[in-house]
């Protein structure tokens, strides 16, 4: 299971809170738990916090047959049946269509994983149409342009700008 906060590391700390009869679960990695724990629960002594964590974890394993399903994690891909809830546990998708089906949920995760980037700039299969090929080529040139500007190589930047113009 992935950490809910950073969605990168695997969650090792599982918190269950019951507020007004509403049960909510939080799954965090150690680093994120430390960050959140210190800000939210700084008034609770550490060993007490540890005990809470341990008991909730035991509770969780005994109740594993009844996982909480939210509206978002319940929705299944019509092609392969994958749900976001299942994805969050592995984290593997079920088919190529999932990237379209769960686009709004996956895109922030993808950008976080790839340092804010969301557009392919690399190799393209030969069967891809001219239009898509040009679009990817433009992404690639824009990426190189950013790099050139960052390196203050304005001569190269000017050339890249012309190349991008020529493609549009």
């Amino acid at each position: 299971m992935l950490c809910q906060a950073c969605k990168e590391r695997s969650a090792t700390i599982h918190l269950t809170e019951i507020d007004n009869g509403q049960r909510s679960e939080t799954h965090l990695c150690q680093q994120c738990a430390r960050q959140q724990g210190l800000s939210i629960k700084s008034q609770i002594p550490l060993d007490e916090l540890m005990n809470t964590l341990l008991s909730s974890q035991q509770e969780k394993t005994s109740q594993q047959s009844k996982p909480s399903i939210t509206a978002a994690s319940d929705h299944a891909c019509p092609n392969c049946g994958m749900t976001l809830g299942r994805f969050a546990k592995t984290p593997l998708l079920g088919c190529a269509h999932d990237y379209t089906e769960f686009q709004s949920e996956l895109l922030p995760l993808i950008e976080q994983n790839h340092n804010g980037k969301s557009h392919h700039c690399g190799k393209v299969p030969t069967r891809i149409c001219e239009h898509d090929r040009n679009e990817i080529e433009r992404n690639k040139l824009r990426q190189q342009l950013d790099q050139a500007v960052k390196n203050e190589d304005y001569e190269a930047a000017a050339k890249l700008r012309d190349q991008i113009q020529a493609l549009t």
């Binding site: 984290p91 593997l92 998708l93 190529a96 990237y99 996956l106 995760l109 993808i110 994983n113 790839h114 980037k117 969301s118 557009h119 392919h120 700039c121 690399g122 190799k123 393209v124 299969p125 030969t126 069967r127 891809i128 898509d132 679009e135 990817i136």
Partner: peptide, 28 residues
């Protein structure tokens, strides 16, 4: 990779590139 691609159609998306089971491998 080019030689295989002559025989097999890879899953590819014009925005996300080569599609992989885990989003951490997307793109290239």
């Amino acid at each position: 990779d080019d030689l295989i691609e002559e025989k097999i159609d890879y899953a590819f998306d014009r925005q996300l590139g080569y599609l992989t089971a885990c989003p951490t491998n997307l793109g290239t």
